[in-house]
Design a protein around this nucleic acid. Structure first.
Lengths: 119, 119
DNA sequence: CCCCTATGTTGACAGGCATCGAATCAGGAT
DNA sequence: ATCCTGATTCGATGCCTGTCAACATAGGGG
């Protein structure tokens, strides 16, 4: 396990500087690639878009309802990946579980990809 | 090969609407997840940041120069993945090959993740 | 022409990942 | 307590991918 490799030269403060302006440090790249990897699956992307476009939060029961052609355990697995990537948070209230996006993380990734919006 | 699955309900025009506003269609998700998957590797993220932060273009010989602890064929492989994802373009001029980022694609992905910048 | 350096490709191997069915856990209702 | 339903976890399986050594290709210089 090359775990200590992740410690080398991680940018202390931000790691939010757009990649169009400054090369990424090795530590930051490991950290950020984990998030992008979570977006690298069509089912997860659709799940995230459903969650992110919800007014406030969304019930899992609205996600497992046949819109995706995968089984419920698979959806649960993908939600876990998104959760561990810090892109969404889940909370159980009574029978159902509700998910909501972590908009700060999404904005951070968005900023990293440039987005000068002025071109 | 479920190739024809990618054809179902792809948004005709853009597929650039932020996921915070509208759920992703299945076809668009397949298309976009391929790009995010290309970002889901630390080596590729660092390569892309080096390329994107270059003034105009960058020589491969500046990338294979020991900064990464992987072999040259591996770097070549990662560059190919980024190329096929449409995030960079490469051109051979004489002995060396030069790469440059496709900023439009990076902006598109950035826009997709929200980035209202007004929060 | 033949060698030499710089890139990219191929084949192979190891580890990771998406997916599912079955089992498990959490809560509400009977 | 007992059952039922919704959600997650577990174990297994097959595909995908990162990596390297070896080979192939491109182009410049002797």
């Amino acid at each position: 396990m090359p775990k200590e490799l992740q410690l080398l030269q991680a940018t202390p403060g931000g790691c939010c500087t757009p990649i169009t302006e400054e090369p990424l440090a090795a530590g930051d790249a490991t950290e950020l690639s984990r998030r992008f990897k979570a977006l690298g699956d069509p089912v997860r992307l659709r799940l995230l878009s459903r969650i992110a476009s919800a007014e406030d939060e969304i019930c899992v029961c609205d996600l497992t309802g046949g819109d995706f052609e995968v089984s419920a355990p698979t959806i649960s697995h993908h939600l876990k990946v998104l959760r561990e990537a810090g892109l969404i948070t889940g909370e159980r209230r009574g029978t159902w579980v509700y998910y909501r996006p972590v908009r700060g993380e999404l904005d951070r990734l968005s900023a990293l990809l440039g987005g000068q919006w002025s071109a």
